[in-house]
Design a protein around this nucleic acid. Structure first.
Lengths: 270, 270
DNA sequence: CCGCATTTCATTTGTCATACATTATGACAA
DNA sequence: TTGTCATAATGTATGACAAATGAAATGCGG
């Protein structure tokens, strides 16, 4: 058990958090599920990779005394992390960190933890790759599957963008618009992607909006809405492709080259 | 409390191991010793919708005596479900079911529970909608981002399909092939989709394979592999589109019309 | 007497501490 | 090598208390 002389925190953002200290602190790190929006972030060193993949973290009892909480709390935290696929615990061998491929990358919490540690540009780029794949298809499905209420929600998003005064309102309406499209597919497999979209964008909503070209964005959003309302799947797809392309342009313009380059060229075979 | 005279089951905290499968009823995970053989193994009535959205389920103590287990177990189950976004509990008002849009549809367990209750054809159709949206893009990304090891994995899947004797082996190799493509994108947002893909297909792997046209499938899989290995994104995308189209044809032929019709036409507005 | 704010109360979740059961790992012996 | 057992870790049970909160009861002013 070289494990880690009290250094292996379940949620230990160690030095990153200002203030903190005090006597009550680490519980909130351990119990990620209690992380309310307003709560302080620092947690889950697993996502950070501070605890190697496949390696076991200290036994429950040890964790208990490390952060001075009861085993109940520790177990609940473990249960939560297990549910998100981060760890896996078996009776005698302890609790192990599962390989990153297996954990639920779209889970809201996992997403947030990642956002705290990762390069934001890389992350936005990857997110955009997924959006580019999914959202046109979602719009097309929405065109053929949406009900009246779905369309009303989409329109509400559009209108909200129109009448928004503050930047924040604008982004909020924007998010609602896109979410409504995902829901309008009537396909629950698309919904988690909408969730992810919301979280990621809400975390970094200062990035995109200020630099974007609002009138054009509005026009394009409404084009998508119209196509969906008309039930024209192809038009909806194309309008979405256009919207995403311009949105990507905006991001590149604001964030610079780093955004547009693929995250990991890795190999240049051939 | 009309709620549910002993009908309200909490889905147990099965581990998220995708490979675990087996037919161990989850109820035994909640109440291992008390699970009477005679009792129906019905689980998670939440997913079934037996407990209305937004409504509260009975207090913990009541659940305890309902299924004759300790509160610890109930609480762990609740924690698990909370982590998956199915429910939300606050101190005095009880534990409420969250709207389906908010729960983690891609979570392995949620997925399994759904599969047990839903019409399998509908579900496969929806799954296919997502695949059609994502997989071509994933293949294209794989073509530009894959490393040598990624390609080796994809090739291994291909070869496995080639040499497979039993139907089961064939399907397993097939799954591995597609998963490898998702991983090869080097974009973690794509990974959960691969997970979902595995689980769903493993549950219903008897459906697709027997009726599919193996030689053609093999040829098309290898075409995707070649395109990715060559780094040709467009070719990879097109090859995948073709593969999926034929795969859908097979499904329609086997499962009948029900598969190809959209799950919920809902409205035929203008 | 009625309406509204405040207080109190009771219910439910959250946490703690301890004990026991189960299970897999690793060592030891045949 | 193989079978058995000790051991250490998680899984479960139980009972008690703390905290939070919604709702009823109460007090005050109109």
């Amino acid at each position: 058990m070289k494990c880690g002389c009290a250094r292996a925190r379940l949620g230990g953002g160690a030095g990153t958090n200002p203030s903190e200290a005090s006597d009550v602190p680490d519980i909130q790190r351990v119990a990620p599920e209690r992380a309310q929006p307003g709560h302080r972030p620092g947690r889950s060193s697993i996502v950070r990779g501070e605890i190697g993949v496949g390696e076991t973290l200290p036994p429950e009892m040890q964790i208990c005394e490390m952060m001075d909480v009861s085993r109940t709390v520790v177990r609940e935290a473990i249960r939560t992390l297990t549910g998100k696929g981060l760890i896996e615990s078996r009776p005698k061998s302890g609790t192990r960190v599962r390989p990153p491929e297996q954990w639920n990358q779209l889970d809201p919490d996992v997403l947030r933890w990642h956002l705290e540690t990762a390069k934001i540009d890389r992350y936005l780029a990857k997110l955009f790759q997924l959006r580019s794949a999914v959202e046109p298809a979602a719009a097309a499905l929405a065109a053929t599957h949406a009900g009246e209420d779905d369309i009303a929600r989409i329109r509400a998003g559009c209108d909200g963008m129109d009448t928004a005064k503050t930047n924040e309102d604008f982004v909020a309406a924007d998010i609602k618009f896109h979410q409504a499209i995902y829901f309008a597919t009537r396909n629950e497999f698309f919904w988690p992607i909408a969730q992810m979209f919301e979280i990621t964008l809400r975390q970094s909503f200062t990035i995109a909006a200020p630099g974007s070209h609002r009138p054009r964005a509005l026009r394009e959003h409404r084009a998508v809405l119209d196509a969906i309302a008309a039930g024209d799947a192809e038009a909806a797809r194309e309008a979405t492709v256009l919207l995403l392309a311009h949105s990507a342009d905006d991001l590149v313009r604001i964030r610079g080259r780093e955004f547009e380059t693929p995250p990991a060229p890795a190999r240049r075979k051939r």
